[in-house]
Nucleic acid binder design. Structure first.
Lengths: 132, 132
DNA sequence: CTTACAAATGTTATATTATTACATAATGTT
DNA sequence: AACATTATGTAATAATATAACATTTGTAAG
């Protein structure tokens, strides 16, 4: 049974914003958007983001310093993330591919080391941008 | 035949520093280290870093905002990078594994899309840290 | 219920990472 | 030499993220 995380007030405000967004959001853009709800300081945003990342409700797109809601309905694999990033329009999608995640989770490097966690970012042109 | 890039003065200073370093270096730590050589401003560092990344002599470790020299003697695959990162001692190594790079370069997502570029960061404990 | 602990909040200040804008110099090509 | 491209120098500022400290809220045990 998965642990239930009851989001706190700030966490909920910030998660809802990210979850509704069609694109990854940056911390200060989040801050700007939630100021009307009484969240005034960067730290309040970063603390909520840290927690949401920790419990797997959102992911950080490292190459963009931006945050996206987890797209895996059964969000077990927050430690094993893969994203598709369009270098033209910056559209980001989470890749949820069992073969890929199995391949990477089972990957052994040349020294025989295994990893419990990874983040993979693919770059290319999305369909729309490719056809332009 | 691979294009030869003659590094400029600043590029060479900064590449040499990164190449000699046993660990990834951060931009402002680089700046501090090269001030005695007449590089005074962040922008001079970032410009050199950008170029070095572009030509594949160094890579950026996105999750750490740090830079490491490319470890692939035949440095063809600067667009396809994989790293091992120790979450305890922060040691970073480039993974140069043909099966992995083939697998990822040939990966098709569920929409049939292919990617010409990726960055993969694995996290775990290195041997030293695991045995503590 | 109340005590105690952990988690979250609020606030100010500051650290770290990165870019804009503009002027000049060096290098490579024809 | 003329031109284009790449690199440099410098100042200012933008964008991203954390430290430190005080207070409040949520939760679980007695």
């Amino acid at each position: 049974m998965e642990k239930q995380h009851n989001l706190s007030k700030n966490q909920k405000i910030i998660f809802d914003l990210i979850d509704k967004s069609p694109e990854p959001l940056k911390a200060y853009s989040i801050l700007f958007n939630v100021q009307k709800k009484g969240i005034n300081a960067p730290l309040q945003v970063y603390r909520a983001l840290d927690k949401l990342v920790e419990i797997g409700k959102i992911h950080k797109i490292e190459s963009r310093n931006a945050f996206i809601a987890c797209q895996n309905s059964s969000c077990q694999i927050s430690k094993a993330t893969a994203f598709s990033i369009c270098e033209s329009c910056e559209k980001v999608s989470e890749i949820n591919n069992l073969k890929l995640s199995k391949y990477l989770s089972n990957f052994e490097d040349d020294s025989g080391m295994r990893y419990n966690k990874y983040n993979l970012e693919f770059f290319g042109l999305c369909k729309k941008c490719k056809s332009k």
